[in-house]
Amino acid sequence: MDTRTFFLYAVAGVVLFGIGFHGILFCRNLVRKVLALNLMGAGIFLVFVALSTRAPSGTPDPVPQAMVLTGIVVAVSATALMLALIRRLYRETGFTELPCDLED
């Protein structure tokens, strides 16, 4: 493998992160926001893994890999909480987007 291949993967991760970031800020639908959040997370994990392949021995550094596994579980939990909140919000109000202003 070319020694700079890691860079391609890492940059792809950064771009995914950017797309997700944009989605979080500018998608109004809450489920899309959840997807954007996961995209952002996936991008970060790709950066972690890509940068861990630079070990001279050839075996990737296990520490970032383990951190990604932990990070995935955290992301799953956060996604679950968000979806639960969305379900409850929908049941209570019928909203699928966050309202700009609420009446008192």
Partner: peptide, 12 residues
Amino acid sequence: ERALVAAMRYLI
């Protein structure tokens, strides 16, 4: 409703 919306906004 208000608390759920606030919680959602905080979470995001």
